[in-house]
Amino acid sequence: MSELYFLASGERLLGTDQGPVILSGPEMNKLNTVAVLKVGEVDSKHYFVALLSDEEPLKDILKSDLVGLRSLLALVQSEDEYCLLSTASQLVTWFYSFKYCPRCTAPLELHKDERAKVCHQCGHHQYPRISPCIIVLVRKGEQCLLAHAAKFASGRYSTLAGFIEAGESAEQAVHREIMEEVGIKVKNLRYCFSQSWPFPHSFMLGFMAEYDEGEITPDGIEILDADWFDPDKMPVLPPRFTIARRLINQFLEEIGREIEPDSDLFFPAE
């Protein structure tokens, strides 16, 4: 099997508007690396992410041409590509975020067999962090609830989402987040699908819910505006690679509406 390598400098995957930088095994022999982490296997090819040392120049790549992870994800053409990029990004974040043992503060080292770091002083194993979250589309007849968060670009609206807190079930988190962010109650929760979300290490559990009672009241901190939207009068929506867009697409299909061409490219709404 052939080996292919994503490149990372610091905590950033390297890529341009043409896609991520990927090198072959022989090309990697010329580079100085801090670590090489296994990402996954697709179509009989082994993928790794190579973390370049600080002294390694970005050969043949202009820093001004580099783009962020969201831009790279927007270019992917399959679910396999998305998962490879998501995994590579999260592994890079994990590698640099956990340098020392959280129990005894001794330096952590990569485990020789597992995807983990190990403390040789106290024996603690540190695995890549995964933060579970819920994301939910609320329906009210043939309308859906979409919100504009403080962190969003101007005009963009999306579904509601939040982290699952200690001791909560995913369903409890759905009810709590919706009440906290927009002040309404929901019912008839239905789990739909999930998505690994590398910003920086979230795992999104997607739900549909039906409106029960209450008036929409944005919290004014995380959510600046929220409203019920008709399928024919949608605002600017999340990009196609997001689970939020997948939930919106499923809603539209369930009420018999067509989705935009290519908006459901590789994550089918069913």
Rank of each mutant, 00 (worst) to 15 (best):
F95P: 06
C101T: 10
M179A: 06
H148R: 07
A166V: 07
Q126N: 10
G183K: 04
P132Q: 04
S71F: 02
P20R: 00
D43T: 07
L66W: 09
E171W: 03
I22W: 00
K187Y: 08
S2P: 10
L237W: 13
D262F: 14
D232N: 11
E177N: 04
S196H: 02
L58M: 07
K112C: 10
H175I: 04
Y96K: 11
T93R: 10
L91W: 10
C192H: 11
Y82P: 01
A166K: 15
H148C: 13
A149L: 13
A170R: 08
R176F: 09
Q121S: 11
E168N: 01
R139N: 07
D43F: 01
E270I: 08
A147R: 12
A226Q: 15
F163Y: 00
P218M: 03
L14S: 01
L14P: 00
K140M: 14
F95I: 00
F48D: 07
F241P: 11
G19S: 10
V118F: 15
T217L: 09
E210D: 12
C144A: 09
A106S: 12
E215T: 03
L91K: 12
P128E: 13
G220N: 02
D212K: 14
S263C: 14
Y96W: 15
I178C: 09
D65H: 08
S89Y: 09
Y82L: 05
D225P: 11
F48Y: 15
R156S: 03
C104N: 05
A106N: 02
S169E: 05
E168C: 00
G167D: 13
E81C: 02
Q143C: 12
F229E: 07
E79G: 04
L224T: 08
K140A: 10
A50F: 15
Q121T: 04
C104R: 10
M208T: 01
V186P: 07
M234T: 14
E56K: 09
S194F: 11
D232Y: 14
C101L: 14
H120C: 05
H175F: 13
R246V: 14
A161V: 05
D232L: 12
I243N: 14
K117V: 07
M204K: 08
E81F: 05
I184H: 07
P20F: 00
L4I: 03
L72M: 15
S89G: 05
L145C: 13
P20N: 13
